[in-house]
Computed example of a mutant assay.
Amino acid sequence: MTSLSPSPPQTDTLLQVRDLCKTFSISKTANLHAVDHVSFNIQAGESVGLVGESGCGKSTLIRLVTRLLDVTSGTIQFDNTILSTVAVRQFPKSPHRKGIQLVFQDPTDSLNPRFTAYDTITEPIKRLEGGHDKAQLQARAAELAELVGLPQELLNRFPHQLSGGQKARVGIARAIALNPKLLVLDEPTSALDVSVQAVILHLLADLKERLGMSYLFVSHDLNVVRLLCDRILVMYLGKIIESGPVEQVFNHPRHPYTEALISAIPSFEAKPHPIPLTGEPRSPINPDPNVCRLYGRCPKGEDQCQQVMPTLEEVAPDHWAACHFHN
Rank of each mutant, 00 (worst) to 15 (best):
S7W: 05
D12G: 02
L14S: 04
L14C: 06
F24Y: 15
V38K: 01
Q43S: 14
A44L: 13
E46R: 01
V51P: 02
V51L: 06
C56L: 10
G57T: 00
G57R: 08
K58E: 00
L61Q: 02
L64F: 04
V71N: 01
S73N: 11
N80S: 14
T81G: 01
L83I: 12
T85C: 14
V88R: 10
R89E: 15
G99E: 15
L102Q: 06
V103L: 06
F104D: 09
Q105L: 04
T108H: 15
P113S: 10
P113L: 04
A117M: 10
Y118E: 14
I121L: 08
T122E: 12
T122W: 09
P124I: 10
K126M: 12
K126D: 09
G130E: 02
G130C: 06
G131F: 09
G131E: 03
A139F: 05
E143G: 01
L144Q: 13
E146V: 03
L147W: 13
E153D: 15
L155E: 10
L155V: 01
N156A: 12
F158N: 14
H160P: 09
Q161W: 10
Q161M: 13
Q161C: 11
S163A: 00
S163R: 00
G164H: 13
G165D: 13
Q166S: 10
R169M: 14
V170P: 11
A175E: 01
A175H: 08
N179F: 07
P180L: 00
L182A: 06
L182M: 06
L182N: 05
L185K: 05
L185E: 08
E187Y: 12
P188Y: 07
T189R: 09
A191L: 13
D193T: 06
V194W: 07
Q197C: 09
I200S: 07
L201E: 13
H202I: 11
L207H: 11
K208Q: 15
E209T: 14
L211A: 11
G212T: 06
G212C: 07
S214I: 02
Y215F: 15
Y215Q: 13
L216D: 07
V224F: 11
V225N: 02
L228C: 08
R231N: 09
I232N: 00
I232P: 02
V234K: 03
L237K: 10
L237W: 07
I240R: 06
S243M: 11
S243Y: 05
P245D: 07
V246H: 10
V249N: 03
R254M: 12
P256T: 05
I262D: 01
S263D: 02
P266D: 02
F268L: 12
A270F: 01
A270C: 01
A270H: 12
P274C: 00
G279L: 03
E280R: 09
P281S: 08
P284C: 08
I285G: 04
P289F: 04
V291F: 06
C292S: 13
R293M: 08
L294E: 05
G296T: 06
C298Q: 03
D303T: 14
Q306T: 09
V308E: 12
M309D: 04
P310N: 06
L312F: 08
A316T: 05
A316R: 06
D318W: 11
A322G: 03
A322K: 03
C323I: 04
H324C: 05
H326I: 04
